[in-house]
């Protein structure tokens, strides 16, 4: 039942979120461009959540070796990469009018988000490159664990790089928020959370179906080998 309710709910919530984002008051400094941030921030948070779920599921797989953990880890990483891409894209189109540039090396979060994007692109590439399911689950779970240890350091090092060379910069988006805008942001976070859940459950279900198709009528490997059709002396 949830497999129909969740997508519908997520769809409705996204429509509502869009309506709230478009009807909320324009920002004093950013004008209408602030509306991009509702989607941008919501996607960024969800991307972090998604990679967090991948990390937890990776550890879960290493401890329990249950295929369910692997499906969740993989699905969540795929969605996380998608959300990170949206985060980077919306960040850039917002940055052009507000900061005057698509890419601002002064913002540590942009650089570390981009690096995280590459880490999990690598994660997905490793999965694609590993044909055997058990090996794929093991290798990607291990990478998931290494990433958990290393990603905070990547983030920290980029922050350190900025703070030591430029000093902390105050950005317009860190200024106190108006209540109407906070509501718009929270509605968007809620809507994208529902979208995340809907995509996650659908992707996990799809993975299970893929495995079922693969398993369908598989005879032992040895049965595929028959006697040669050749005879000597012909």
């Amino acid at each position: 039942m949830t497999k129909r309710i969740l997508p519908v709910l997520a769809g409705l919530a996204l429509v509502a979120a869009l309506a709230v984002a478009l009807s909320s008051p324009p920002d004093v400094l950013q004008g209408d461009f602030v509306r991009i941030l509702y989607i941008h921030v919501a996607n960024a948070w969800l991307a972090f959540l998604a990679f967090g779920v991948t990390a937890a599921a990776s550890i879960g797989w290493l401890v329990r070796k249950k295929p369910g953990y692997d499906r969740v880890a993989a699905a969540s990483a795929e969605i996380g990469v998608l959300f990170t891409a949206v985060t980077l894209f919306t960040g850039m189109i917002w940055g052009k009018p507000i900061w005057g540039t698509f890419w601002d090396w002064g913002d540590a979060r942009m650089a570390s988000t981009a690096l995280m994007f590459f880490v999990y692109l690598g994660y997905l590439a490793l999965r694609r490159a590993t044909p055997d399911r058990q090996a794929r689950a093991r290798r990607s779970a291990i990478l998931g664990v290494i990433a958990v240890v290393q990603v905070p350091l990547v983030y920290f090092s980029v922050v350190l790089w900025r703070t030591l060379h430029q000093g902390l910069t105050i950005r317009p988006d860190s200024v106190q928020m108006e209540p109407a805008m906070l509501v718009a942001l929270l509605v968007n976070v809620g809507a994208f959370s529902l979208l995340y859940l809907a995509l996650l459950t659908a992707r996990v279900r799809l993975a299970r179906l893929e495995e079922a198709v693969e398993a369908h009528e598989r005879a032992p490997a040895g049965r595929a080998v028959t006697a040669p059709r050749l005879e000597t002396g012909q």
């Binding site: 692109l121 690598g122 990433a147 290393q150 990547v154």
Partner: peptide, 9 residues
């Protein structure tokens, strides 16, 4: 490709 982004620090 796996190692490079993690080598950033």
């Amino acid at each position: 490709m796996l190692a490079a982004p993690l080598a950033v620090p």
